[in-house]
Design a protein around this nucleic acid. Structure first.
Lengths: 344, 344
DNA sequence: GATAGAGGTGTTACCGATAACACTCCTCTC
DNA sequence: GAGAGGAGTGTTATCGGTAACACCTCTATC
């Protein structure tokens, strides 16, 4: 019996030999670039099929063809927003035939150009940054000018006149405005805001909230971190105050912490206190009470980010469908204001 | 002024020129392989520093050095177990200087060898499969024998005599046994089980639960999918039955759906009904009631999976510290059995 | 003092692809 | 009917590394 000593994967040379053409012609067929007669194309395709040929991405990257891979830079992937965005990016990228790498940013480390570039498979590899928080924003800034990249950001800001076309974001301001208006319309005299850390100086969620408050006094926002735990701790003083009757939370995880704090303090939701969040995480509809929240289409946003990148790399690439606008979902955790001490 | 036409990243040739040595010597220094005099090493390091040299992973992969990248194959990354495992893998890999790719498996598509290999950057690239569910298991099976890989699996099974050393898993059976015993010790006559889909034929969570029930009648497990929604739907008939006083759920998401169903049916938890989950997702401690659950160290498991892989690729690699044993966390959602109709 | 062996370094081939360019046929044009 | 130009294909250089091997210079050995 003849053993198979090195069952190495087929290369374009193997395909070329079987098809009886040059390796370059195989490359042409594979990449659909340049002119190849229909006849040869068929022969090559047959050889590809027969050998189970798959292009070697590393070799293609080296040789310098059109990029076929992206690395996603993100911090903590266990946060809903980042995870859902990543999911969208990955799906879009895979459908477009791209490989995707992932590299998690250390929250404490400064992101230098050298550090960021060192995470890539090649120095020129395309990058998508999920820049909802400070490490992401730093990584985005650390990218050299002209590096192929796209980013999902919190807010384009007002500093640099035209925001780069490759940046995508959700309309946080409008979302927060709507949610706050809704709470005010329920009769609450004001709405307190429990904030997630802002990456840009100006949180649009905070801004939308503030704008909706109009001429009312604006209570100081409370910093509450990213987790249910940090929100729980931050919310305890707030729920102890009977004048606080409505709390808008920077995301659903924070809202969960608030719900907990309220419950421990004996304040019923939505009877004594209304609570609303952002995101519409899968769990939010099943909490008790189910959470009023603003649905944010992170997955669509991720697809959009990849779409922007793809159009940088391949100007002819199809346009990405737009992602959904934020949508207020009214559920059980919000209700009309009741006087603080109904029986007194 | 002289423009910089092609500020291409430095290669080992550039470094070699600056250091006054051959490119091969640079390669030796970078990879710490072969003998280099301390003197030249210093010169090379200085040149690397000066030029900001970073090795090109694609080129190294092509040339066939030791692998320096892994692709993680997983299905839905928004599930807590998969996300946390991925996080552990990524962190361990990055610390070891590996690049990590990610590719999400289509739940419906059959995973063929051709398909799976086509997701990799090179045909020989190392792989870690998160194989908690059917697509993952299929992908694992599709890998050709001898392909460098590790896998986080549900259960090693009894079929293949020695489970591959590169497989890692959590002791689901013991975990479920402990949780079930705990519920029985509270006085519940039996414990119902709401199951996540099992990838192997034999779910160890189901087995541990069944074993703990000992000589009692074993109620049929209820299939409940992966999401709060599917669990909610599956749990409705269960919570309507007053004889059901304790439900063990395949994970915390399912437990959330059960909590919701119980609440809608007017059954108080833990007064009328005890509910326990698996995972200890970050939200679980803040639910209302907070969830009794078995903490599963997915992140440690992910690190362990990478460690196994690394020891295949580099036999001298340090051993990975073991991950934590499942640990029962008793919180508010479980309590002593109360007669079904106390007032009748 | 010849010889073996180890330390340290350079040379060359090769990995699997792409790009640039050269070359052959045709076909069209005037 | 000769030249222009396009279609289709092959040749060669190149990307940034690694491996294998050749080579030189010491030092230890008998």
């Amino acid at each position: 019996m003849s053993e198979t000593p090195a069952p190495r994967a087929a290369s374009i040379w193997d395909v070329a030999k079987v098809a009886g053409v040059s390796h370059q012609t195989v490359s042409r067929v594979v990449n659909n670039r340049g002119r190849v007669s229909a006849e040869t194309r068929v022969k090559v395709m047959a050889a590809i099929e027969e050998l189970g040929y798959r292009p070697n991405r590393a070799a293609a990257a080296l040789a310098g063809g059109r990029p076929r891979s992206v690395t996603v830079l993100t911090s903590d992937t266990s946060l809903y927003g980042a995870a859902a965005t990543l999911k969208g990016i990955e799906e879009a990228a895979r459908n477009a035939g791209y490989n995707v790498g992932i590299s998690v940013l250390d929250p404490d480390a400064a992101q230098t150009e050298h550090d960021v570039l060192g995470r890539l498979a090649t120095p020129e590899e395309a990058v998508i940054v999920i820049a909802f928080d400070a490490p992401g924003v730093r990584a985005l800034k650390a990218l050299p000018a002209g590096h192929p990249s796209a980013a999902a950001i919190e807010y384009p800001g007002a500093s640099d006149d035209p925001p780069p076309a490759s940046h995508v974001w959700l309309d946080d301001r409008a979302a927060a405005y709507r949610a706050t208006r809704y709470l005010l319309d329920l009769g609450h005299h004001t709405v307190h805001y429990l904030a997630i850390p802002s990456s840009s100086g100006t949180s649009q969620r905070a801004k939308g909230w503030q704008d909706a408050l109009e001429d009312r006094a604006v209570p100081a926002p409370t910093d509450a971190g990213w987790s249910p735990r940090s929100a729980y701790l931050a919310a305890r003083p707030l729920v102890a105050d009977p004048d606080v009757t409505a709390i808008l939370c920077g995301n659903d995880d924070l809202a969960l912490g608030v719900l907990r704090a309220a419950h421990e303090r004996g304040r019923s939701v939505p009877g004594d206190l209304s609570v609303a969040g952002f995101d519409d995480a899968p769990a939010s509809a099943f909490l008790h009470p189910s959470l009023t929240t603003v649905r944010l289409d992170f997955e669509g946003l991720g697809k959009g980010a990849f779409g922007q990148l793809q159009r940088i790399l391949e100007p002819d690439a199809p346009l990405t469908p737009p992602w959904a606008e934020p949508e207020l979902l009214v559920r059980e955790s919000t209700g009309p204001r009741r006087p603080a001490h109904p029986r007194e």
